[in-house]
């Protein structure tokens, strides 16, 4: 059987696998591809068969390792995702994303009258009140948020 190479391997960078089907472009938005090195390649695979979650998306980003804040944001929209750090073509680290108890600086509070939206020298701060599906509660104004994509900081 001939194996078709759909996405080229990367030498250094990050592979985000097991992204919930259809959310790869939102993951790219979180990663912030505009900030990438101009010589870096970004590969996206949409609607890939997965033994674990049925169908999935995959994103590979060359020459970039994700900050904990970006990992938290990915965990919010796709708790099934895994992150592999590639160095010299080898997987040096592989882990599932893990949502912490507090999510800081990742989501804006949807309540426009919340003190976190008034230019105060603070970061947004949400408590995770439920994990599946994820429900957040603003640590300042108590507003609950489930629609994270519209409110990513």
């Amino acid at each position: 059987m001939v194996r078709e190479l759909r996405i080229t391997p990367i030498r250094n960078g990050t592979v985000i696998d097991h992204i919930a089907n259809g959310l790869a472009l939102d993951v790219l938005r979180i990663i912030g591809v505009r900030d990438l090195d101009k010589d870096s390649t970004v590969s996206i695979a949409l609607h890939v068969r997965s033994g674990k979650i049925g169908w999935k998306d995959i994103v590979k980003v060359e020459n970039m390792e994700l900050s904990p804040r970006k990992v938290n944001a990915i965990a919010l929209i796709s708790p099934s995702a895994t992150i592999s750090i590639i160095r010299d073509h080898q997987v040096r680290e592989k882990r599932a994303v893990d949502l912490p108890e507090h999510v800081t600086g990742v989501v804006r509070c949807p309540n426009i009258n919340c003190i976190s939206n008034q230019g105060e020298p603070i970061e947004s701060d949400f408590r995770v009140v439920r994990r599946r599906p994820v429900v957040l509660r603003c640590a300042y104004c108590d507003r609950q948020v489930t629609d994270f994509l519209r409110h990513l900081a």
């Binding site: 976190s116 008034q118 603070i122 104004c141």
Partner: peptide
């Protein structure tokens, strides 16, 4: 007392 929701939490911090 403050007109913005969450002001007291910020103040406590």
């Amino acid at each position: 007392r403050h007109p913005n929701e969450g002001a007291a939490r910020l103040a406590a911090d």
